[in-house]
């Protein structure tokens, strides 16, 4: 360092180089790209505004029909939320089972994942809608001790050991069947996502929690899972968006109060199919955009303490949320 200073030519303060004002690198390619894209966008706008086949009035009218709005709110949004709740809760439970020391639990989780990942959702939903046949001739879905009549006969008693009787016509039809089917299928995928998240947490975290005397359940709930969420949330956002779109498969159950079915029935009444497709697209675009905003906030919440930004450092003591 000192030798550097010595060899540098002695110069007055005015000669020392100051702020850099250089000519930036030109990017002619960008201007070409802008020109091409501008033309393409103009073509698209031209198409959207002038082509009569869009029939925008009809599109918005169709979107405004009460059955369609109901189909969107219940068939699309509500079913997405319920299926994802079943899927996420089920998936986390399956992942914890899969990673447990208990070989039975881990095996069961594996079989569940294998089975429900193997079935296409459309076929699963179709099957859910037909399962009622299993219980048609035996007076409904009875839950109780298996082979109870045989055991009772063997013990010389009478009566039955069935505690809960469910009506298959309520469970294996409509939205309930749809939510169960989509939820179980989702749980299988979420199980893998949650497992990856749990495995991504450093082993030292669980050890530190154990060393403080936490039970294994607490270690998982308080320390491992909150950190795993950081890894789990982004793919779960993907899954939610996919689920939103998969609600259109509810038709297989069948669920008639579903968005696209309702739109299609309007379309077939008025012999207009293309505007119906546009209307459905607009609904799904809107819903997906809202979900992406939600995902942003979830990621920010579970990313706290990671990364370099310090949004909460300035908070007063005691205000830090758990």
């Amino acid at each position: 360092m000192s030798s550097d200073n010595e060899t540098r030519p002695a110069a007055s303060a005015d000669d020392r180089p100051g702020a850099i004002k250089a000519v930036p690198v030109r990017h002619p390619g960008r201007w070409v790209a802008i020109a091409i894209i501008a033309v393409l966008v103009a073509m698209l706008v031209h198409l959207l505004l002038t082509n009569k086949a869009f029939d925008w009035d009809f599109v918005f009218q169709a979107m405004n029909q009460q059955p369609v709005i109901n189909g969107f709110l219940k068939g699309t949004l509500l079913v997405t939320v319920l299926s994802m709740v079943v899927g996420v809760v089920g998936g986390v439970i399956l992942a914890v089972m899969r990673l447990s020391d208990n070989p039975i639990l881990s095996g069961v989780a594996w079989v569940f994942t294998w089975f429900f990942r193997a079935i296409p959702r459309y076929i699963l939903l179709f099957t859910m809608g037909t399962l009622g046949i299993l219980f048609k001739d035996i007076g409904g879905l009875n839950i109780g001790v298996p082979f109870d009549w045989k055991i009772i006969e063997w013990l010389g008693l009478s009566g039955d050991w069935r505690f809960l009787n469910l009506d298959p016509n309520q469970i294996f039809t409509g939205m309930i069947a749809g939510v169960i089917g989509l939820g179980l299928s989702e749980a299988a995928y979420m199980a893998e996502i949650a497992r990856a998240g749990i495995l991504s947490v450093d082993k030292g975290q669980a050890e530190a929690a154990q060393a403080l005397g936490m039970s294994s359940g607490k270690v998982m709930r308080r320390v491992v899972l909150p950190q795993a969420m950081r890894v789990i949330v982004p793919p779960t956002g993907n899954e939610t968006i996919a689920m939103l779109k998969d609600t259109s498969l509810l038709l297989a159950v069948p669920v008639l109060g579903e968005l696209f079915y309702q739109l299609q029935s309007i379309g077939s009444t008025y012999y207009k199919t293309f505007p119906i497709a546009v209307a459905a697209t607009l609904y799904y675009l809107a819903a997906t955009s809202v979900l992406m905003v939600g995902q942003y906030f979830l990621e920010r919440h579970f990313g706290r303490g990671f990364g370099t930004q310090a949004p909460r450092a300035a908070r007063p003591a005691g205000a830090g949320g758990a």
């Binding site: 975290q205 530190a208 403080l212 607490k218 950190q227 909460r312 830090g320 758990a322």
Partner: peptide
């Protein structure tokens, strides 16, 4: 283990909790 405190080479603080939450966690939860 509650009777024994342990300090690790790599600290192993809970990264999703503030300093005071890290310290108060075990008394509250355990």
């Amino acid at each position: 283990r509650r009777e024994i405190g342990m300090v690790f080479q790599r600290f192993n603080l809970f990264p999703h909790k503030t300093a005071i939450e890290n310290v108060a966690e075990a008394p509250i939860q355990v």
